[in-house]
Structures are given as C-alpha cells and as structure tokens.
Design a protein around this nucleic acid. Structure first.
Lengths: 337, 337
DNA sequence: CTGAAAGCGCTTACAG
DNA sequence: CTGAAAGCGCTTACAG
C-alpha cells in the first residue's frame, strides 16, 4: 500500500506537503495541491490513521458504553450518538455491559488502550469510581441516563422522578389506590428516581404505601413476565393498576396478563416508563416517554465540546423532560374485582 | 502518561521485555515478569494501541456496516457480531448507511483509514464494486444478509425465497387468492428473493399473478403504513391477505389496518417476513422468522477466521433457515367482503 | 531467557 | 508557501 512518502515522491514534494493537502491545513499553492492530488489518485493513497493518531494524539473515535443495545431505548440513544458524532467526523465504538460492573471496567480499559478521544458511559451503580479512573487519565467523559454521586462530570438524564410522579398521579385520579410498581434492579439510579416519584405521588395523595406492591426484578421482558405473574397471583388484595419500570418490563407484563386471561384496561390498568417500541398493536399503552434520541444527541454534543477543547470538562447537567402520553391502557378500577 | 520505556526503566529491563509480559508472548523468567508487573501496576501503565497497530498492522477492530441499527433486526444482528467478536478480543465500530450508497462508500473509506482488521458489510445494491474495492486492499470482508453478483466473497444470508414461499403457501391453503405483497426497495437483493418466493407459491398453486398486488415501498414503518392504506383503499377487488416485506412494514400495516377499522384476522389476514419485535400485544402475527443473532454471529466467525489467518478469504456461503411461526393473524378469507 | 537497533507512517515544531 | 529533522510508542527481526 502506498504511503505518504510514495505520494510525495511521485508529486515531487516533501511528505509534509502531502500531509497539508490531505488534512487541508496550512498553505499549499494551487498547482502543488493539484499535483499532490493527482499522485494520491494514481496511487490510491489512503492515510494510515494509526500513524496519524500516534503522532497527533487523536483517534477521532468515541466509545459508547451502554447496558444492552437490544433494548430499543438504547438503540435509539445509540443512533442519536452516532448521528451527532458523524456530523463531526467521529466514529463510535459500541460496548454492551449487560449491567455487569466487570464488563464495564474491562471495556473502559480496552478503550483507554485504543486512545479513544472520549467516553459516553452509562454507569451501573451510583459509584463514581469508573468515571474517576477515566478522568485521572485526562480523557473526556460524559455520563448518560443515570446520575452519579460525588463527582464532577458532565451528565445527561431524563426526569425520571417527575415522569413517574405524573403517571402515578394520573392513576390515582382515575381512582386507583392499589398500584403495583414493577421496578428494575435497585442499584440503578433510574430505578431509585422512579421509585421516588411513585412514593411522592402516593404520599401527596395520602395513600399509604404497601411495600408488597413494590417489586424489584430486572429491566428485561422475561423478568417483567415473571414479576407480573407473581404479583397478580399472590398479592392480596390484587392491585388494580400496574406501573412498569421500563418498556421491556411492560412487554413482559402484557404477555403475562394475556396468559392470565386479564384484559387491559377492563381488568387491570397498565402504565409504563419509556414508550413501548413499535406499539402498533392493541392496546396502546399510557406511558411516560423519554426522548432517547435526544438523550444520545445531547450527550454526544457535550462530549464533542470537551474533545474539541472548546469547553473544558465540567459539571454540566442536562435533565430532559419526560412526556406523559395518555392512551388506552387505563380506566377506573373495576370495583367488582 | 507512562510509556513502555518508563516501565522498563523502573523494572530494570528493556522495553521489549515489558512488551513480552504485556502481550504474554515469548519467554520471560518468573521473577522478571513479577518485577515488570509490579512496575506496570505502580505506573498505571496502559499500552498505546496506536503505536502497537502502527508496528503490528493489527487494530483488533472490525467494522460493521448495516442499514439502520434502529431496526430491531439489525440490532440483534449487531449483538451477535459483538458477542462473537468480544470472544476473540475484537472491538466493533458500527456504521449506519440508511440504505444510501454514498454513506456506505464514505464509511468504507473511513474504516480503511482506521486500518480495521475486517469488514462486515450489508450491501445496498447487488453491485459488488464496494466489496471489490475492499478486497483490492487485501482487507478481509464478509457480506451479510444480501447476496452479491459476480464476486467471490464469504457471505451469510437467510432463506428469503423459501421463507416467503412457505408463508404464501400457507395463505393459499387457507383459501386466499388475492394476497398483496408489500415489498421494500426493489434494488435490495432480499426484496427480490422474497418476491421470487411469492411468485413461485402463486405459480405452483396455479394462481395468476396480479401485478397491482405487488407494491414497492421502503423497509420502514411509515412506508408500511402508507402502502397499506393505499392498498386497502384503492385496489379492487380488495386483497384478503397481506404479506409484509419485513417487520417494520408489518408495524405500519397493523397501525393502518387499525385506523381503517379493519380487524386482524377477522377482516384481513396478515403475515410478515421477520418476527415482530416484542410482540406482546394482540394479535400475534404469523411470521417467517430469521435468526438475526445467528446471522451476525456466523458472519463474525467467518470474518474472524479470515482475520486470524486460519482460513483464507474464500467463497463460503451460509444460508440460514427461516422458521415458519404460525400464530393468530390469519384465517380463511371472509367471503362476504 | 533477554536486549540493541531499526522502523512502522505519520505530524510537530522549527526554519527559511 | 515549502521542507529537513525528529519523534510519537510500540514491535519486528535479529543476535546472543
């Protein structure tokens, strides 16, 4: 493969001149530029980014570390990140942690070796140790989706507390008093924020909180299925409404309710955090919808501002609003049941 | 940041010895290794992959170029690729083409600059030019999902023709004779294969083909929605069954049918290529299901075999079977309508 | 089992 | 506007 030297030789210039043409920096006379471009064309020259990165300390690559790309929420976040990044000529390496701390740490180290220009990271616990590790090496980092304790870092997340509060309030106003909360893993900050919104809504409406109605599973549809069955089969008196902690839990819940012969909303009302993916089929679920594309986009732009050196790594925090989408999955509780 | 020289100095050895410890190759005496490891620990040394790649000509990175990660089919393919790759210590850079040839070519060039070790590529047209461009530079490449004409290359795709044939045959056996085919962009090889299966099924059952029932849109839910409305509102006599060219078209179709007040399967039968994502809600759709995770996994393993040099770049072709999932979205045609 | 030297292909930092 | 020299941080290819 042709190198910058081959091109320089063919064009009768020094390698640095070729570099100037390729990177479009500095002054190059028009005819010189033309000769260099012709040589590039003839030799099918493609610059070697490893060499460029070694010298310039830039890889033009970001790392995006999420829990699981298979969840449409993260898929859309990813798309937002990619679109924002490719705008600025940056590529994105994608990593899935499956909510495992060990995987997260492993990927961070691999990406540090790769000298990537910045991290977009979805933390698992609220412990800032991983972010500190990155910051110690002076690599830009932005935290996504989940706030962290005791660390100064740019971060973007959604109004989980407020969104949940709105959903629960809506159910209460329909007349529900026994609302089950199907939450995910308790360590994750978004779980905690959503539970806080749930509790506040109950409290403000003078409803006592029944701890048996607060159930922790995982943010997966299999778990949503199990937890819903367990909830509907064993809790007495049965809840009249279900809050699903995320979209995948809702998917599992709908399937479980179907298998149990319970109709939505006639037999039970259902709301969910996150809009359901591709909800073409019935019933349309009432949801607190985040803006995942926006989340990814904004986080990427914060990171790019750091990387390009325009803005120093800081302590900016963006909280995105959550939209209440009232659809057909809720009704007043059936007093006969 | 500490370099290999700093570590070598602290451990009292040569840089090459540190290299041997880090990469775990060649012979190193146990006590030497221990001293080096202590120095690495103390200096928090992380190897620089740009330097490594420049010398070794390996980046341990693959490029995956798909149409749109937002489609759950591609999401799952991606997960299969990532899992297979991380097994072998390889990272994956993800690129979305949105079915635009210009984006594809641009990404290929960026990835060539990055010196990635291999390409997994979903071609847009059947034209092999992009693949030839990659092969000319001696970079391993595997083609995914869509066969290419006139080129020797490893490739993995699903039995699109056979899967469609099975679905159409199933509808015909239920008594349908007017089956609309909602296809995607005609340039894409999978569209062509699915249409071939449709035609073969009609032909083998002595049904004449009505060209007005073969409609081309895009592989997107917005397009599926439009095309379904158009199909149900303007074609006479109205089809009694709908074949959706992929999962997203099916999502749009269900929504359109709902808006038109048509019930599935009472008023119209629906089948789809690709399983619907998260089909928790009613009605469960009868589908020809590909194995997207398997598709990604197998393609990645083919590529890794090339990259690791164990198997030469070849002309291997893997065609994955498609599973017919009969569910509740079909019934005999309503002769009254 | 260990190391000295060279070089991968660029860009930086000057100099003119 | 152009270029000579040095060096980024590793690994290759020897040598002993």
């Amino acid at each position: 493969m042709a190198t910058i030297h081959d091109v320089a030789k063919l064009a009768g210039v020094a390698p640095i001149t070729v570099s100037r043409v390729v990177n479009n920096v500095g002054y190059v006379r028009e005819d010189t530029r033309a000769r260099v471009e012709a040589a590039i064309q003839e030799l099918q020259y493609i610059p070697n980014n490893s060499a460029r990165s070694l010298r310039s300390k830039k890889t033009n690559t970001l790392a995006l570390i999420v829990s699981d790309i298979t969840n449409p929420f993260w898929t859309t976040v990813t798309r937002g990140v990619e679109d924002a990044s490719s705008d600025d000529g940056l590529s994105v390496i994608l990593c899935n942690t499956d909510e495992k701390q060990a995987k997260l740490e492993n990927y961070v180290n691999i990406m540090l070796q790769k000298q990537i220009d910045g991290f977009l990271i979805v933390p698992i616990s609220s412990n800032p140790q991983v972010v500190r590790h990155i910051q110690r090496r002076k690599v830009p980092v932005v935290v996504l989706d989940r706030p962290l304790h005791d660390v100064e870092v740019d971060a973007v997340w959604s109004d989980n507390e407020g969104g949940t509060y709105q959903l629960i309030k809506y159910l209460i106003q329909l007349g529900h008093t026994r609302i089950a909360m199907l939450s995910g893993i308790s360590e994750i900050a978004t779980s905690q924020q959503r539970i806080a919104g749930y509790k506040r809504a109950l409290h403000e409406h003078n409803l006592t909180q029944d701890d048996s109605l607060l159930i922790h599973g995982e943010f997966k549809h299999e778990s949503g299925y199990q937890v819903t069955r367990q909830c509907m089969e064993s809790i007495q008196p049965r809840p009249t409404a279900l809050f699903c902690g995320n979209n995948l839990i809702a998917v599992g819940a709908f399937k479980a309710l179907y298998d149990l012969g319970l109709r939505v909303p006639e037999d039970i009302s259902v709301v969910t955090f996150d809009d359901m993916p591709f909800t073409a089929t019935q019933p349309f679920v009432t949801a607190a919808a985040q803006s995942p594309y926006e989340l990814g986009w904004q986080a990427a732009k914060l990171l790019i501002a750091q990387v390009s050196g325009k803005e120093p790594s800081g302590n900016r925090q963006i909280v995105l609003p959550v939209e209440l989408l009232i659809r057909e999955s809720c009704t007043a509780p059936n007093t006969l049941s």
